[in-house]
Amino acid sequence: MQAVAGLSFEARPGEIFGLIGPNGAGKSTTIRMIMNIIAPDTGTISFDGSPLSEVDKDRIGYLPEERGLYRKAKLGEVLEYLAAIKGAKPALYRPSIDAWLERFGLSEWKHRKVQELSKGMAQKAQFIAAVAHNPSVVFFDEPFSGLDPLAQDELLAVMVELKQKGATVLFSTHIMEHAEKICERILLINKGKEVVYGTMADIKAQYGRNAVQLEFDGDASFVAGLDFVESVVSYPRWIEVELKEDADPDVLFRALAGRLRVRRFETVAPSLHKIFVRLVGGEEAQNVQA
């Protein structure tokens, strides 16, 4: 069985890279191969231009999709152990761990057993385990899953911070909105194959088309039937309408008059989700969250 095939991409130092795709697209398999946990049948993984070696792994921080820490051990001990096996010196990782625990409000849990942590706290602890040894590259596999919206925003901010400090941040997600917020470069995959790859700006420009985001009261089902409308994607609070190439948004605005109570009408570059839907078709896109 082949999980991924023919993927090729690179992340540059100091950039945030998103590996995006629906569930089962092969994101975790790709990351596991990069982390040398499983070996690819063919192909190479390079780090700083030369093949990835065991030593390079020390400079990478990893947050696996399958979360778990030694439950019977104390939180501080586990974090120190995980930093030590990355080859970090105690003088470096001890203050770093304390600072991160402080940052996530976990300082008082340092001497308690991991099994006493709540699920959200354990998630944060696992995040600290990935970054405590000050890696130059961090890999987060689905970092946002299981976090409440507040914690998700906190994590997004931390990732931007890591990037600003010069780290290369790679993460995988099936939630396009997160990728859209912070990624500079993305690889969108589906069924183990590349769908689109490039910088966010390039992709938007390439697939940038006539689109309008619309917030309204009333029934908008007629919009999809208008002859100058290419497609409509519904979001919980708005719809995104893609117009045919030569159509003017103004035509749409006039067509809506009197039939809907429009609260927001905004011409936009298409969202990543929209691009994904266009590229893989609506059925596949069901698995992806906007």
């Binding site: 982390m35 040398n36 990478i60 696996p64 399958e66 979360r67 439950r71 995980l82 990355k86 385990a129």
Partner: peptide, 17 residues
């Protein structure tokens, strides 16, 4: 077995052989 069931194995293997 605990390494498997507590799912620590991946993070361990990302650091040690």
């Amino acid at each position: 077995v605990t390494e498997k069931t507590s799912k620590t194995v991946e993070i361990m293997l990302s650091s040690v052989k």
